[in-house]
Design a protein around this nucleic acid. Structure first.
Length: 959
DNA sequence: CTTCAGACGTA
DNA sequence: CGTACGTCTGAAGT
């Protein structure tokens, strides 16, 4: 036998089980990987797909995985704190290690643990064994200690910044990166230390200096011999830490000659117990795709290889058949053949309207999964920004695997044979059974082509948001990656619908090929939506969120789409004047500040300000910012301003700085508004993000119209630039008072709080009279405001410390207030505690309408993270329920306005306020209608109080 | 050219 | 050491 040749073909892959599991755990969001039993699975998923990936790319013939064993090793005896940080591994990770081992066992992979030693030592030994047996050896590890093993025949595969992107650490690569040889690497590490393992190095010495010294003195021994001649702070630090460095070097040396009781030749793999593996994958609830990929990788042994490679891949994903239609008739025929449902007949579009009446039909009537089973996919590409939307193409993909792509030029309204009419008819008839990804965005794109889009059966973007409200994929591809673990080519991931492809540019060279590729991208995207729809629908059913989706979120999309395309009219001249005035004020303040500072310090640079304030002027710094520097925020400046009365220079500088901060900020806000005015209609079209805020609120971007100043007179002036547009007479502002508190009253069932709202009196005064046990008329302004702060603080999980700070009272006094408050409103305390308790138990919170938010952080071992999660869990159902109620109200108001045939229309939502543009003659009716919709959005134990105001601009509409 | 921190606007 | 957001700016990374 040519045994040497045989061995040359052999490749041994040695895997550091713990480090790989760690890397996977921290690289993948734990909240998006868990099965119904609540078991986290992100590390298992990452581990198995990573291993499959390496097997596919490196084709090892032998494989072994090393694990650490519980209990200390010889290293702990030398260095007690060794890997102290690792023992604090989160439970969510530790619980996955046995699963990984189960999986390896079912895949026929040898894994090795050696009590008293670390996985690293097992790896060192295995790698050495492999080398001696003449194997090419690969070490898959995220632990840099493994670098010392690297030589001509041993390569370390080391995860890069993105988990799964592996670097091949060869001797050359080590030298290139660290400027030392692999043999010298542990000497370098000994000086640098290893934070991940809780090993201190020489302070101030990093890779750079360590490498420099090693090269100067030939190695660690040389350095330590000449330690006295190394100058500077770093030399000093080195001398002070020589013992530590020596110890580090001993600790980080890997043992390479353990007796593991195995031979390299035994480490073959591929003897997969398919049934056991499939059972485990089912338990972990990994997708079919993951399962097949992993099984395939492990079955790909040379022996099994030849026998059955024929079929498995091809049938996995049948490509859709791309049909060609070029006339209205052809399109109609295609739609009738492929989009019509077979079973039970599709719902008549007329009956969808009837739903409005049977408002309180509260049962989970149908199943989303059933409706979606027959659905087809509608996907548009183009610009989805309101006010400048366009549509480049439309893709229809049917459930029976057919697809049509229509270019915009083919269905523009003026085309001869009315393909436009055909598309309109198809949408009118079949859209209600379509699934789309982004109903609102599609509405804009289609509206730009004069094609109305009725409510589809499912919006996968919204459904995905309900399923994981704190994950925001920015494209279909990202969503598919997240929910289905389907990887897409990088170039298609970035933009969601903004296809920059020019269909009509047919003269260019190589255009056919580009077109084909683009069509492929569109088909693949539609295919992903198809799969997302079929994955998400049953999840929505199982969580009973169908009504939340179809009766709240989807109609809200439709309302928002109208609001966005209306936009808000702007008095541009007024805005320009304000901008100039603010700019002049800011410049004046800046001049004065510069004069006092004696330097042209950039007032917008905290760093430069720190220099001037704390070093130049020698002012006392107050609080530190989280990164360690001293804050220059308004509160701190104000404080310093008040304390510097006897220092004219500093006092004037601070005053000028504060003025500059304020006016410059206002100038900046006004300028961004000006930049956002759409020249086509002189209006600002914001985009309301419906799938961003984890609590269920909307957010507003490009520009953000939900943070226009309102707290002081100067800033509030900006609101006067928001005016009724041509054809409208005034603006209506209608807002809820104390919604969140009212929700707390309802949900807690606290009789005293409910009564406080029902009484109709000044709420905070009334509550204060109960808390302090005094007649309402005797309540002082201080008492009222203290109780008010307490009430609002409740829903935020406010600490007594925070309350004390805000009210400028002692923590003890804050504590007394809190106790008095809860003595009066005991059920509120019970309720708030129950929120956190059930969140801890179930893993998520729920709003009045079943909107969920998950809080994995509640189980964190990190106190700060846990506290933050508790506050979140306290707040989410309250803020979220308020958001639900407002969404219901705005849909209702919108529909009622339309139904009444009014031209007045909602244009903005600011969490608890609606702004309505009022047409002449409709003031009273529209006001009544909107107020009514808000007040009666839901029936709860307390009245929903809504106050309204009409005015010539947004500021004047305030009340 | 992109990313981070710090600051600050809203409910 | 109170929740939820978005935007601008300077500074430092690529």
């Amino acid at each position: 036998m040519t045994s040497q040749e045989q061995k040359d073909d052999n490749t041994l892959l040695v895997v550091d089980g713990h480090s790989l599991a760690f890397r996977a755990f921290f690289a993948l969001p734990v909240e998006s990987f868990s099965n119904d039993a609540g078991q986290s699975t992100n590390a298992v998923w990452g581990f198995s797909t990573m291993l499959a990936q390496v097997i596919e790319s490196e084709h090892p013939t032998h494989l072994a995985v090393a694990f650490d064993v519980k209990g200390g090793t010889f290293r702990n005896e030398m260095l007690p704190q060794y890997k102290g940080t690792r023992d604090a591994a989160p439970e969510e990770l530790l619980s996955q290690l046995p699963l990984i081992q189960d999986l390896l066992r079912s895949l026929g992979v040898t894994y090795i643990e050696k009590p008293g030693f670390e996985g690293d030592d097992v790896i060192g030994t295995l790698a050495t064994m492999g080398e001696q047996a003449g194997f090419r050896t690969l070490v898959l590890s995220g632990d840099r200690d493994a670098f010392q093993l690297v030589d001509e025949r041993i390569t370390v595969l080391y995860p890069g910044h993105h988990f799964k992107e592996l670097k091949h650490m060869t001797p050359d690569a080590i030298v290139e990166k660290y400027h030392v040889t692999p043999v010298q690497y542990p000497e370098l590490a000994a000086m640098r230390g290893e934070t991940a393992d809780n090993i201190p190095g020489v302070p101030g010495v990093g890779d750079g200096f360590a490498a420099k010294w090693i090269n100067e003195y030939g190695g660690l021994e040389g350095i330590l011999e000449h330690a006295d001649s190394i100058g500077g702070k770093k030399g000093q630090a080195l001398r002070e830490n020589i013992d530590q460095v020596r110890l580090n070097r001993k600790v980080n040396a890997l043992v390479r000659d353990l007796d593991l009781g195995v031979e390299v030749g035994d480490l073959t793999f591929g003897d997969v117990d398919t049934d056991a593996a499939k059972e485990l994958f089912a338990k972990l609830q990994f997708g079919e795709r993951t399962r097949n990929r992993v099984l395939k990788a492990f079955n790909c042994m040379p022996v099994a290889d030849a026998a059955q490679e024929s079929t498995p891949d091809a049938e996995e994903e049948p490509d859709a058949v791309l049909d060609t239609v070029s006339t209205k008739d052809e399109l109609m025929r295609w739609a009738h053949e492929h989009l019509v449902t077979v079973s039970g007949g599709r719902e008549d579009p007329a009956t969808t309207g009837a739903e409005e009446h049977g408002e309180q039909g509260d049962q989970q009537s149908g199943h989303c999964a059933d409706d979606v089973a027959q659905s087809w996919i509608l996907s548009a590409e183009g610009d989805d920004r309101p006010g400048r939307a366009s549509c480049a193409s439309l893709t229809f993909m049917s459930a029976d695997g057919h697809a049509v792509i229509l270019e915009a030029s083919a269905f523009s309204q003026d085309d001869d044979d009315s393909l436009h009419e055909g598309v309109a008819a198809v949408l009118d008839t079949y859209a209600s059974q379509a699934a789309v990804h982004g109903y609102k965005e599609h509405s804009h794109m289609l509206a730009s082509a004069h094609l109305p889009l009725p409510q589809p059966v499912l919006d996968t973007k919204l459904a995905g948001y309900l399923v994981h409200p704190d994950f925001h994929p920015d494209s279909v591809e990202r969503a598919a990656e997240h929910f289905l673990q389907i990887e897409s080519p990088a170039e298609s991931k970035s933009s969601s619908t903004q296809g920059a492809f020019a269909f009509d540019d047919e003269t260019a060279e190589g255009n056919d090929e580009e077109r084909r590729q683009h069509e492929e991208l569109l088909l693949r995207r539609a295919g992903l939506v198809y799969k997302l729809a079929r994955y998400l629908a049953p999840v929505i059913d199982e969580r009973r969120q169908l009504k939340l989706l179809t009766d709240i979120e989807m109609p809200v999309s439709s309302t928002l789409s109208r609001m966005e395309s209306y936009g808000a009219a702007i008095d541009g001249e007024r805005l320009v004047n304000m901008r100039d005035q603010f700019a002049a004020d800011a410049r004046q303040a800046q001049e004065l500040a510069w004069e006092k500072a004696g330097t042209k310090v950039n007032l917008q640079s905290p760093k430069q300000l720190q220099q001037v304030l704390f070093e130049d002027m020698g002012l006392r710094h107050s609080r530190k910012t989280k990164s360690g520097s001293y804050t220059t925020n308004a509160a701190a400046l104000q404080d310093m301003y008040l304390k510097s009365v006897d220092n004219e220079r500093a006092n004037t500088f601070l005053g000028a700085l504060l003025r500059h901060r304020e006016t410059n900020k206002l100038k900046q806000i006004v300028q961004t508004l000006l930049d956002a005015v759409n020249p086509r209609d002189g209006r600002i079209h914001t985009t309301f993000e419906q799938t961003v805020a984890a609590t269920g609120r909307l957010s507003s971007v490009d520009p953000n119209l939900q943070n226009i100043p309102n707290r002081n007179a100067q800033g509030r002036e900006i609101r006067s630039a928001f005016v009724p547009g041509p054809g409208f007479i005034s603006l209506l502002s209608s807002d809820y008072s104390q919604v969140e508190l009212r929700i707390m009253a309802d949900l807690s069932g606290d009789e005293a709080l409910i009564e406080a709202f029902r009484s109709g009196r000044d709420f905070h005064k009334y509550v204060a009279s109960l808390v302090y046990d005094l007649p309402v008329d005797d309540i002082t302004q201080d008492q009222r405001s203290h109780v008010k702060a307490m009430s609002y603080g409740l829903a935020y999980g406010l600490s007594t410390y925070g309350l004390a700070q805000q009210l400028r009272i002692s923590p003890a006094a804050a504590d007394v207030l809190k106790e008095k408050y809860f003595a009066t409103f005991g059920k509120v305390r019970d309720y708030l505690e129950s929120l956190v308790d059930t969140a801890r138990e179930k893993g998520y919170t729920e709003t009045m309408f079943g909107r969920r938010r998950y809080f994995p952080g509640l189980k964190s071992t990190n106190r700060q993270a846990r506290d933050a999660a508790e506050r979140g869990a306290l707040n989410a159902p309250i803020q979220g329920s308020a958001a639900d109620i407002m969404k219901i109200a705005m849909v209702k108001a919108d529909q009622e306005l339309i139904k009444a045939g009014l031209r007045s229309r909602i244009i903005l939502q600011i969490h608890d306020e609606l702004v309505v543009e009022i047409a002449d003659g409709e003031q009273e009716q529209a006001t009544r209608l909107v107020k009514d919709a808000m007040e009666h959005a839901v029936e709860i134990a307390v009245p929903l109080d809504v106050s309204t105001g009409l005015g010539d601009d947004w500021q004047l509409a305030a009340h």
